[in-house]
Nucleic acid binder design. Structure first.
Lengths: 232, 232
DNA sequence: TCCATTTTGTTCCCACGTTCACAAACTCCT
DNA sequence: AGGAGTTTGTGAACGTGGGAACAAAATGGA
């Protein structure tokens, strides 16, 4: 076994792999809930909807957590991935913009169960401030700085209309937030060192529409155009 | 100018480009709303948050719609991209699962304005059926087939809990839906020829958490780790 | 103990996507 | 008309990611 400190220079995990680790984590949790203690890369790959060679390569970036001829210990591997992603610790999160989507996010149980704790809901609309959503009272947007400092928040979620998104992002960055999840249909620019991920509902539909249009035009799709193929 | 029929074999647009076309479309709409008639690739690239070389290469897959020394006509290019994606036509969509997220999706105005028309909201819960959400009455899930046939629906949205997702997808596929947008936190398997795109809220947060953890550990991020960098 | 079997971890190779750099082409000014 | 300046479209280099194939390592049976 090689020495492996928590800040090992050799551990450069490809971005594509990082994006799949949460999927593996979820699949492992499902296996564990079914009472399965051990699984092969083939089993886990099927559960995660990927190719087994890719799965093994992904896991190899984390270390050697399997046993040749046997497979992986479900609980052990699950812990290792969780630790690698960082979901063994608690991440305070603020959500800005409590419209329809903000409501849904505040109520989404999947956050809490994965180590994300919603410490505040913020909105600029005075009519919304003071209302209780998902057991949390909505506070004015101007309280952002106070809340971030108090809870040491590093991750912010933007669920505002498009026009407000850049302003909110600027305020977040100024206060020290370094990771932003943006649901607003707008491109937000941030300085280096700040990570932004974007989730855009209508863009996903437009991508599907493009492929749908091609199918209707009689074009032969080269493979599963956008998603994971597999048996039904 | 080369001949270019609507079903030209030479038009194989890379998947990565397809995913960016809706972003360009939105940026062009924003420019048009500002009264700008013409823009350079540099202007549009900035508005879309990408590199100008990449933008030009992306657009070149559609055809030669710019003028050297001048730039692009905003309205003309916008129409060409919209036609290419297929948002000049009307796409009927059904949403299955009217929980918090389904509510938000039903109310999202960005769908309608881009050619997506919600023809039905479906849920298996009898308590929800009959209620009106966003001006549409929720119908029982079993009405799916009737609705899909009546409106010739090709695109389905899954916003159910994870456990129901595969069943819903199977039903959709059996009835003839060929594009699925899945918001449920589960991997759904579909046969070849069916496209699935997945939007997973908690996975996005976990990816951010990974990078956040690395920053906290003193690791130097190679570049903007997950998002589009740029000036604030 | 030794061999057959299983399954991981890794290497090699190919395809895709991104970026640079530049020729082609257009406008405008003299 | 001609040249300077500008901007597109594209060819080529580079880097990242995916998949097949195989060596290494573990188990279990004879």
């Amino acid at each position: 076994m090689t020495t492996r400190s928590s800040t090992d220079a050799a551990r450069v995990i490809p971005e594509a792999t990082v994006a799949r680790l949460p999927v593996y984590l979820r699949a492992l949790t499902a296996l564990a809930d079914s009472g399965i203690r051990t699984c092969s890369s083939e089993d886990l790959a099927t559960a995660a909807g990927v190719n087994s060679a890719k799965l093994r390569k992904d896991l190899s970036y984390l270390g050697s957590y399997g046993t040749r001829g046997v497979g992986y210990d479900v609980d052990y591997l699950r812990y290792q991935i969780a630790r690698e992603i960082g979901v063994t610790q608690d991440w305070p999160v603020v959500i800005v913009g409590i419209g329809n989507l903000g409501h849904a996010l505040a109520n989404y149980s999947g956050f809490r169960s994965r180590g994300f704790r919603i410490v505040a809901l913020l909105d600029a609309d005075p009519d919304l401030v003071g209302r209780s959503v998902a057991g949390v009272v909505v506070r004015p947007f101007d309280d952002l700085e106070e809340i971030v400092r108090e809870h040491d928040v590093a991750i912010g979620v933007i669920a505002t209309p498009a026009l407000a998104a850049q302003d909110v992002a600027d305020r977040m960055v100024a206060i020290g937030i370094t990771s932003i999840l943006n649901f607003a249909p707008a491109v937000v620019a941030v300085p280096d060192g700040v990570d932004v991920r974007k989730v855009d509902l209508s863009i996903e539909l437009q991508i599907l529409a493009y492929h749908e249009q091609r199918k209707a035009n009689g074009a032969v799709e080269p493979a599963a155009g956008a998603g994971e193929g597999g048996a039904a």
